[in-house]
Design a protein around this nucleic acid. Structure first.
Lengths: 253, 253
DNA sequence: CGTGCCAGGTGCCTT
DNA sequence: AAGGCACTTGGCACG
């Protein structure tokens, strides 16, 4: 397997123009390195004075401008945006337009020192473990983790004020609202409270609220108790084991 | 101004190894394009089977793996991580380690088709307009936007349950809690409620809650009224004008 | 298409 | 160091 590629060092504006235009036509991935200034106008607006950066243009319209440091692009436009390039005197103007919401990124290259286009083949997808989705699935497979006698009635139950992660009944027939979080903070308690308050108006009998999480920020457990809610701590390490269908002992979690 | 750069096409594992090692030593920015698989292990864990990707390694330790499409890197390690590269037979192993929390990204290159290192000079910083911070500043300069007679007592007032954007008094001496949002959703109402509940316990007299935003999701205004709160709509376009110190008429907002 | 919510969120700031 | 929160948050799933 070989990536098709074209690379130019210290290209003239004209050369860069041609490389980018052809790459855009062919749906290739474009990398540019050079001295450029950036203007952004959209949901917010921003100006970035000239500096040497890496500009990354993908075939799905994604535009990323990366500085020398930092995790995140300093400017960007998301997939679906449309890029155009044109030359004005010795300057090269790369403009990316997003329609909804309307957002515009304009890059002015004073100098390009590297231009490359690449035809990437990649059909693989990331397999991610340890997400909240997995926590919920674990609880469905092992409802006893919520409590002995707990029965799941519905997963992702939509309400006027948001979606309840798990909703079911305890051994006594009381409604139980379960909110699942990887990291439980005050916000999670508020979320739970919102759902419990709502169901109290609609369901007869008691409505209990349970927050299940792998981690709790300080004070959250106390707040839960103050609100009359309960909590369960899950051990994330053990979850994959449970997922694999190997019936493990509950004390493992 | 010229970027120092080194570029190799279809490098051997040995050539890539040398280029990356020297670039790491010199604190340069590294771009690699090639066929690689990725493993991640940390707060979560993930596997990405082989495919052709762009790998971006910055001098601050940032590692980004970008697929052909998508806004976000499919795998990454943030600034402060430490990268090492080594060769094993014909494979090239790039490993990035973060310490707190411990997170590890391991990239196995089956083939590298492009390797480049760049010495970027960039001292510029982004100037961003239209943030929530600016909304708060507008309100401080024009407290009448909250309501005639409103006086600001404190900005960013910290409480046990979070930071109140604006806190002040109305013409009658009642406490007023102002929550500022660019986009107000149910969550913003909960946030406001939390602060108002808290201040009701601490302050004598009435405590009013006001949500000021440029946009409201559906139903939020109704919920606010249900909770006994008020809201104000700001026009974001007009804010910069107000910021510039030109005293504009209130009806402009 | 808007609305809500998770994310390996990230970054910033304050206790 | 931990917690709270904004972010051009981005992304997805669902009404």
């Amino acid at each position: 397997m070989v990536v098709e590629l074209r690379v130019v060092l210290h290209p003239s504006p004209r050369e860069t123009l041609h490389l980018v235009e052809e790459a855009l036509r062919n749906g290739e991935t474009i990398l540019l390195v050079g001295l450029c200034g950036v203007e952004y106008e959209g949901r917010s607006s921003a100006t970035l004075p000239p500096g040497e950066r890496v500009v990354f243009l993908k075939s799905d319209g994604t535009l990323l401008v990366h500085q020398r440091v930092g995790n995140n692009p300093i400017c960007w436009n998301p997939p679906g945006s449309r890029a155009k390039i044109r030359q004005e005197d010795e300057l090269l103007l790369l403009e990316s337009e997003r329609l909804k919401p309307r957002e515009n990124v304009k890059i002015t290259f004073l100098q390009v020192v590297f231009a490359g286009s690449f035809e990437l083949v990649d059909h693989a997808e990331l397999e991610l473990r340890g997400t909240e989705r997995e926590l919920v699935e674990t609880l469905i497979q092992h409802p006893n983790l919520v409590e002995p006698g707990f029965r799941v009635v519905k997963r992702e139950k939509p309400t006027r004020y948001g979606v309840i992660d798990l909703y079911g009944m305890d051994g006594e027939g009381n409604t139980v609202v379960v909110e699942v979080k990887r990291l439980a903070s005050f916000q999670a308690v508020q979320q739970l409270r919102r759902y419990v308050d709502l169901l109290k108006q609609r369901e007869p009998g008691e409505v209990r609220g349970v927050l299940v999480a792998t981690r709790f920020t300080r004070g959250v457990k106390a707040l839960l108790e103050d609100c009359g809610f309960e909590y369960r701590v899950l051990n994330p390490r053990k979850i994959n084991k449970g997922e694999k269908g190997v019936q493990s002992r509950l004390t493992d979690y």
